[in-house]
Structure formats: C-alpha cells, structure tokens
Computed example of a mutant assay.
Amino acid sequence: MTNLASSTNSDVRAEVTGAYAAWDTAFNKADAKGVATAYVSNAKVLPPTHQVISGPEEIEKFFAGLFSGGFTDHKLTIIDAGGDEKVVYSTAKWTANGKGPDGSRQSAGGIATHVFERQADGSLKLRLHTFN
C-alpha cells in the first residue's frame, strides 16, 4: 500500500470536503435514505448513545429518528484528513439545530471521526462514523 504524498493531501481533503457536502445536503433535506447511501453495506455508526448501528437499513432508521426530532442545519467542517488509495480518514467539527424539550430551536455540536473506503469508481463511502 502506497501512502499519499504530501502534495496530494490537499486532494484527499478536497474529496472529503465533497463527501461532507453531499452528506450535509442529504441530512438537511431530511433524506434518511440519501444519508444511508453514503455508507458501505457493513458500515458502523457509533453515536454518543453508545448504540452500535450497523448497515444502511439501521443507519437510515437512526437518521430518520433524528429528523423526526427536528434536527436540521447540519454542517461538517474538516479538522484533518489523510489516507491512501483504499482508506481515507477524517476528523471534523459538526453543528446542527434541533428542538429543545419546549419545542424551541436548540443548537448542538461536537467532534466526528470518519473512516471512508474508496469505491471502485474512486468515490468515498463511509465505513465508520462516530461522533459526540
């Protein structure tokens, strides 16, 4: 496995930025199926609830639950990214808005870690996603 040269780290960062933009777009449309398509078939999502969510069906159901709770305005901002021709990793700050117990708008945010697998067509799909 060949590591990416430092001159291509900006390429990886640009790819991750593009993947994040597509993910945020699906999230902000409350498109749980669209969000789930960003993950490989054996992907894991590890939210702060300590659940282990496996595969696109469970991932879709998890995000549909967030959308029914009024979450929107999601934004991922890259902290770091790197990897090679098969696996790409990234860390990001995330922000979103939801509804508080009284129905008022409430902001949320934290840090996320992502591991992507490069697909045959060169695109990135998530293998692991954890956030707090």
Rank of each mutant, 00 (worst) to 15 (best):
T91Q: 10
L66T: 06
L4R: 11
F67I: 07
G110P: 02
A108T: 12
K125L: 05
L124E: 00
P56C: 04
G103Y: 11
L128K: 07
D31C: 13
I53D: 04
N97P: 01
G69R: 08
N9T: 09
I79Y: 04
A43P: 05
K125R: 13
T130M: 15
N42F: 07
A43G: 07
A22L: 12
E57I: 09
G100D: 15
A5R: 15
Q119I: 04
G83M: 02
P47T: 04
N3T: 14
G65K: 05
N97M: 11
T91F: 06
V52I: 15
L128W: 08
Q106L: 13
H50S: 09
I111T: 13
S107K: 15
K61W: 12
G18D: 14
P47G: 07
G82W: 05
K93F: 13
W94K: 06
D84F: 03
S123N: 12
W94G: 03
V88Q: 01
N28H: 13
D102T: 09
A38H: 06
Y89H: 14
T113I: 11
T25I: 08
W94D: 03
P56D: 03
K93V: 15
K75E: 09
G122Q: 11
S68A: 15
P101R: 12
K33Y: 08
A26S: 15
P56G: 09
V52M: 12
A22N: 09
E85R: 13
R13K: 13
Y39N: 03
K29Q: 14
F131E: 01
A21L: 10
A32C: 04
N42C: 14
A26N: 06
E58F: 04
V40C: 06
M1Q: 14
S6P: 08
N28F: 07
D24F: 04
A36M: 04
D121P: 05
H50I: 05
A64K: 03
D121Q: 11
T25V: 10
M1R: 15
E60D: 12
T8F: 12
T25H: 12
P48C: 08
K44A: 09
K99R: 12
K75P: 00
A96H: 01
A81M: 06
G110K: 04
F116D: 00
T77D: 12
D102Q: 09
V12R: 00
G100H: 12
D73I: 02
T2P: 10
K33I: 07
D102P: 02
A21G: 08
D11K: 15
K75T: 05
F71E: 03
V87C: 02
A22K: 09
A81E: 01
N28L: 13
P47A: 08
K125E: 02
A92D: 01
A36V: 02
L66F: 10
R13I: 07
V16N: 01
V52G: 04
P56S: 08
D31G: 06
T49E: 08
A81C: 10
V87S: 06
S10Y: 10
D73T: 06
S104D: 08
K61A: 13
D121L: 07
Q51R: 13
N3P: 11
K44Q: 15
Y20M: 05
R127W: 03
A38Y: 03
G18E: 09
H50F: 09
T130F: 03
I53V: 15
P48F: 11
A64T: 02
T2V: 15
H50R: 14
V40Q: 06
T72W: 01
L4S: 12
K99C: 10
T2K: 14
